[in-house]
């Protein structure tokens, strides 16, 4: 599976597997720098992202956290003038390398955005669209994946009787869970979430948060959030970014009870930002 990531490599890499020990890394970031033209948005950060855990990225606007998140599945490639130095090692490969197959990478490292962005299609087709593109055509297989993905996204019971209705008929919270279902239908290893609950009402927000915690048994999750309480409720580790630097990265419990760096304390307790 992973060899498809690199079009011109013969490197033999063992296929990724789920359910590994918490402390094992899924991503190793080494001296990552990200530029938008002349401007450097991320200043050489290094960190390990743990497998089957939720990693929260926090920090004030413009601190580089979303830029970093987007670099993990090469979304920054879409921004003219943007480029990265350093490494993000995934399954033994530097995913920043030019010869990485970005489409294959995004199958393994999926992303959910701030605003729910379902396709203007039915609920069913929102899930099957990419699957068909990936070559899965058999109706029974598609049905099976649709049900499994919607169940895993805690949406099945709410939509099972109207799978062929427009995705736009769903509430904002349901649309966001559909986007998560669409992402997990591709069986990624890593899910990137960019403020996934910021546009949702409190009940939908709570459902999405519960879902994220449930999903970590099967996926490694990295989430950008401006909501400190959300980071503290759902994440295992928290990384605090400021002005493009990684200021502190530790167990979430430590960050929110007794951080080691004064700037982290000031930020999480709302003294600036």
């Amino acid at each position: 599976m992973v060899t498809a990531l690199k079009e011109r490599t013969t490197m033999d890499v063992t296929a990724p597997s789920h359910h590994n020990d918490r402390l094992e890394s899924i991503l190793s970031v080494n001296n990552l720098q990200i530029f938008y033209g002349e401007k450097r948005a991320v200043n050489g950060i290094s960190m390990e992202i743990e497998k089957n855990s939720v990693t929260a990225l926090i920090g004030p606007s413009g601190c580089g956290k979303s830029t970093f998140l987007r670099s993990i599945n090469r979304m920054n490639d879409l921004i003219p003038g943007s480029y990265a130095k350093g490494e993000i090692i995934y399954e033994g490969l530097n995913i920043l390398a030019e010869d990485i197959n970005v489409t294959a990478l995004r199958k393994e490292i999926g992303m959910v955005f701030q605003k729910p962005n379902p396709f203007p299609k039915s609920i069913y087709e929102n899930i099957t669209h990419a699957l068909k593109f990936a070559g899965i055509k058999k109706k029974s297989k598609l049905d099976e994946i649709v049900e499994e993905s919607l169940r895993n996204a805690a949406l099945w019971d709410e939509v099972k009787d109207r799978l062929h209705s427009s995705a736009y008929s769903l509430s904002g919270g349901q649309q966001q869970r559909l986007c998560i279902a669409r992402t997990i239908a591709m069986k990624p290893n890593v899910i990137l979430l960019d403020e996934p609950a910021s546009a949702l009402d409190p009940i939908s927000n709570a459902k999405v948060e519960d879902l994220i915690v449930d999903l970590k048994k099967d996926y490694s999750i990295v989430i950008v959030t401006h909501n400190m309480q959300q980071a503290s409720r759902i994440s295992d580790k928290t990384a605090f970014f400021l002005n493009g630097d990684l200021i502190e990265y530790d167990r979430t419990e430590k960050i929110f009870t007794n951080p080691s760096v004064e700037k982290t304390e000031e930020y999480i307790s709302g003294r600036f930002g």
Partner: peptide
């Protein structure tokens, strides 16, 4: 006020 860290302590 959702205090954390030293505020909570």
């Amino acid at each position: 006020q959702s205090p954390v860290a030293k505020d909570l302590r």
